[in-house]
Design a protein around this nucleic acid. Sequence first.
RNA 1: GCGGUUGUGGCGAAGUGGUUAACGCAUCGGAUUGUGAUUCCGACAUCCGGGGGUUCAAUUCCCCUCAGUCGCCCCA
Length: 432
Amino acid sequence: MDIKVPRGTQDILPSETAKWQVVEELIRETCRVYHYKEIRTPIFEHTELFTRSVGDTTDIVQKEMYTFQDRGNRSLTLRPEGTASAVRAYVEHKMFGYPDQPVKLYYMGPMFRYERQQAGRYRQFVQLGIEAIGSADPAIDAEVISLAMALYQKAGLKKLKLVINSLGDTESRVAHKEALVNHFEPHIEAFCSDCQNRLQKNPLRILDCKVDRNNPLMETAPSLTDYLNEESAAYFEQVKEYLNILNVPYEVDANLVRGLDYYNHTAFEIMSVAEGFGAITTLAGGGRYNGLVEELGGPASPGIGFAMSIERLLLAIEAENNTWEDLATLDVYVIAMGQAAKKKAVELTYSLRQNNITAEMDYLDRKMKSQMKSADRLKAKFVLLVGDDELEKQSAMLKDLSTGEQQLVPFNSLLEQLQNNLTTQLEEEKND
RNA sequence: GCGGUUGUGGCGAAGUGGUUAACGCAUCGGAUUGUGAUUCCGACAUCCGGGGGUUCAAUUCCCCUCAGUCGCCCCA
């Protein structure tokens, strides 16, 4: 065996899929309650979609995209994020014309970024994305943020930190960027090489730099908050007010910057503060993108959304020591002794399944003892035993593995008997 | 892209420059001709990620390479 999964990808094995299903179910239910509808878009798009929306100076576009030529010489890219696709679909299907605005969408599926793997980071990973397009009401900002928080709470997470900031509108951002460049440029040679690159590209990131955090120029750098124009500042105030109304605790971090170009106004990030988490603690991130629909050819329509990583959600749940209900249950294990009995066992197993009873049997012609061990290991509730004696009596031995009790039951009343036993066992569990 | 670390059977994990590579778990067989625990007995790595080198001899030393993993950058 020398072919392995490609770097940064993983197989999610049967022993793991149960928890994925639990989380996925929780997510769909939450989205339903918040009245977001699922949209499914292709896993690859025209490359231009991402260069135009995400921004061609961003890390994602510059070094992380899986881009390829198809046989028709088109440049396609495995989607690195979902907002661009959702907005593309919004424009393409003229959802701006829908009577009910904002259009509220969610999607869940794999995203792809070419990066070195590390704890909580993969080249193929699964994101839940939420988008509300068509409203510039600060209340919907609060709704989107609270949806994310509600989801984590339902998943049992407590050690969370919500950080918000306002990037302001274009006017505010341009003014601030100019101020930053003026502030750092005269002394930029004192900064790390990354920061020197950031100066023109994205000076906001300099504020975030860990290498240069002790440089005195950091303290005196112009804050984004001071450069918000009146309208942007007022908008941000209202978002905070709505979060207060919803009792969603947050911290304002004036240095919070998101990596994608299309963001403006509200930006937020949710982190896990659980110990035992890896170096990457961001569970979800999002923000407002008021210019994006227009950028992709639609009418000016404001939007806001977020993306959260399912892998990181799972990691966070584990880091907080929450446990998973074991969903893999087996009602009946059918044991056959001898070839004649095997034929009956095959038939019985099939009919049980026809009646929604989870059933399994041995396909290795193993001895009875081995089959019993399998039934035990698989945590079967009941065993149905068929041998020559039983065949003669047109019956099967029905054994309750939890009590060890067994009784001979005629074939023709087996189904009824089993269904009775299963329901009484279920009720007893409830009473415990 | 850069750096740390690891790479021995299905899994976990010891180990040494030299005739049979510990041990634990799991699995299979038997003790127990048709019953799950425990116990006891037995089986289970022509080979120690791959390639090259040093050596009389390498899983153990050196080099290269590949892979996993963690971290930096950045992000979900």
